[in-house]
Design a protein around this nucleic acid. Structure first.
Lengths: 240, 240
DNA sequence: TGGCGCCTGACACACTTTGTCACAGAAATC
DNA sequence: GATTTCTGTGACAAAGTGTGTCAGGCGCCA
């Protein structure tokens, strides 16, 4: 994990989202919020989330089933929040795959302690496993990208050396083609950090990447600029 | 065993993990923790653990069955911890393969004495009998690695001599392909010690290994550098 | 259409991280 | 105990990354 851990709060009450958000931000975490399962999935797809705080009671899909599907698809740690008086037992939450369980109302100190404990626990073991679940191959334009070998290969067989930063940025783009990604999102996805006011590092990295990928870097076809919005990876990507 | 012994504490109570952890760290041990069987297995896969402190009562899989499976797969020594009032007898724990048995509450002096005794005991027998449970053969790129003979053989039949340090580092890498390993992890896995601030020994050793493994050491394909992250062993490894 | 302000591309430069070599102390071997 | 081999440290070179600057492009408004 680079930079501050990124926490996603999933709760249908705005007041709770704002309150918890303030507490976590004050403690140095990066925070995103979602009001329901749909928003949660969107944020998970668009950011590099380190931990999910999930309310048990949600309108539509409830927290338990969300937790289960989340667990099936990834191994992002989950802390379950439940309203006081819920009949649910800690055990049920943990059986659904939650890493911890916290009954409302809870103090901010306790919340933060639990988050740090879960992060510490999963970090020790996850650094390695999550990094590359399994090697994948992507194809786009005249390029092939091998995540196992960390290599970019042109269709004539020549390998194009990529620096770590260029590689990480390219992965972030290739995994989200035909979508506008803001500089914030790219920084989060590729570097795991947030931008400060005058951050131009993504621009520089895009420029370097274009110089290696594009036939004519002055007229980019692969990574297009969305004026005022960010960048978009335009080619069709065939996966695996 | 090189460096300070690395102890893994497996207990579902955070307070106990933290308390025991502090005691052991203060006595010079290196410590990792896990809250359940799943976390335990991951840590065992990612670190070189010398001894496991295992709570008998765990949610999900209980300590006894964990101990049994642990024993089936490796010969890492285990000390069982049981809550006061447990009906279980020392004998049962030992029958499951534990090396010692310690009822809660226990004093820190007693805990440390037992750990040292078990380590001393198993160290003697392990060095005497066999270091490796069984010989394995790995294949990657154009190389074959025989852990029985501690030999690296190129596909044209020539053997490449490796020093002990190079061999240990290579094993650590080969057993975790396509995963980014930090210098800390590699130092732990290959040398059994932790890094101090300006430790560059892994870099040097990687450089030496590349000079022997890579076709072109200046453009490494097998051991790749992850800038700001560590190293990654990229080739597909066929085991045995 | 021209002017203005903001956004982006490109590049140089400072700074951090990594590669490599020489060397000295440690360890192994004889 | 002497010699050889191995390993970690320091030093310097090389590579990677982010910031600042300047030039040019884009949208907006008159």
């Amino acid at each position: 994990m680079q930079g501050a851990p990124h926490i996603l709060i999933v709760d249908d009450h705005r007041e709770i989202r704002d309150l918890v958000s303030r507490v976590l931000v004050k403690d140095g975490f990066r925070v995103s919020t979602a009001a329901d399962g749909k928003a949660m999935r969107k944020t998970l797809a668009d950011s590099r989330i380190d931990l999910v705080l999930l309310d048990l009671m949600l309108p539509g899909e409830d927290g338990l089933s969300l937790c289960r599907t989340l667990r099936a698809a990834s191994n992002i740690p989950v802390i379950m929040l439940t309203a006081k008086g819920d009949e649910i037992d800690r055990v049920i939450g943990l059986e659904m795959g939650a890493d911890d369980y916290l009954p409302k109302p809870f103090g901010s100190r306790e919340l933060i302690a639990r988050i740090k404990a879960v992060l510490r626990r999963t970090h020790e073991t996850m650094t390695a496993t999550r990094a590359e679940p399994r090697a994948k191959r992507y194809q786009f334009d005249r390029w092939g990208l091998d995540t196992g070998a960390r290599e970019l290969i042109r269709d004539d067989g020549a390998t194009m050396p990529l620096s770590t930063g260029e590689y990480d940025l390219l992965i972030a783009l290739v995994e989200r083609p035909q979508r506008v990604l803001s500089r914030d999102q790219l920084l989060d996805l590729a570097r795991g950090r947030t931008a400060n006011a005058l951050d131009r590092s993504i621009d520089t990295q895009v420029s370097r990447l274009r110089k290696k990928l594009e036939r004519d870097p002055a007229d980019p076809k692969i990574i297009k600029t969305v004026w005022g919005g960010g960048y978009m990876f335009t080619p069709a990507v065939t996966h695996e």
